[in-house]
Amino acid sequence: MKKTRNRKLPGNSQWQWKNLIGLLPFFLFIAFFLVMPSLTLFSGAFQDVDGHFTLANFSFLQNTFALKSYLTSVWVSLITSVIGGVFGFFVAYAITAERAPRWMRNVLTTFSGLAANFGGVPLAFAFIATLGRTGFITALLKGICFNGAGGTTICPFNPYEHGFNLYSVTGLILAYTYFQFPLMVLTITPALEGLKREWSEASANLGSSSSQYWRYVALPVLWPSLLGATILLFGNAFGAYATAQALTGGSIYLVTIMIGQQIRGDVLGNPNEGYALAFGMVVIMSITIFLYVMLQRKTTRWIKS
């Protein structure tokens, strides 16, 4: 279709390229403020201090400290994208269910929009105020005490005496989930709505049970969207910085936190290794976004048919 339209226009290709002039400001902006900064880092990642080409900077991967930061980041992103993905999927299912009350749907989509956009420092504050050492829920749970033998008081519900710690990876996962699952709700709801009622009816008509329908039809149709959305959640968590910084004061070494410290004071002792660290992040994010876009395309092709 594109081609036939081009042919209609006079002068064809030359005429077409001239028209790109109108996009010049946009491309200049992108070039200056996105491409150039990225290239500065990338080229730095492949240079030594004197500007010669080297791959030595990637030896940071042998630096247990830096490698660990990658592993922590990947771990936190993976776990929150899976938890958020599964939970978000069920919530989206709940609001698209045939007989779901209208108000429930409205409340949940509105709050998903809010929570998915609510992150950064305030989110950390909210969790500290709720589940921190003196937080509201912690205090509430701590208050439930019984008189034990010999005049001692037993407070069985103090979470901090049972290995819970908000200022840890666990806390981080809990906080990230707060914006992860709503994002899942927002991204997966259109896909769930794309499941035609006729499919489940045709399936039942052919004798299948509800679980057979989900196993053979609904989930196979949904899986590119599910996977795509989960990957998006992964990227969303992987690039996050502020919540972790505010919640744990930078004591958990995520890659983003490491890069932050590298910007402030070259903790790696080699600026080029910092660039390599950043380059690695961009590579991971590129793969993530690429997979997401590809899966998204696959989905639209199916749903449209």
């Binding site: 006729e198 499919w199 009816e201 045709a202 053979y216 196979p220 149709v221």
Partner: peptide
């Protein structure tokens, strides 16, 4: 069905 309702993944 009017809309065929074929399973797109099969």
């Amino acid at each position: 069905f009017q809309s065929y309702a074929l399973f797109p993944n099969m």
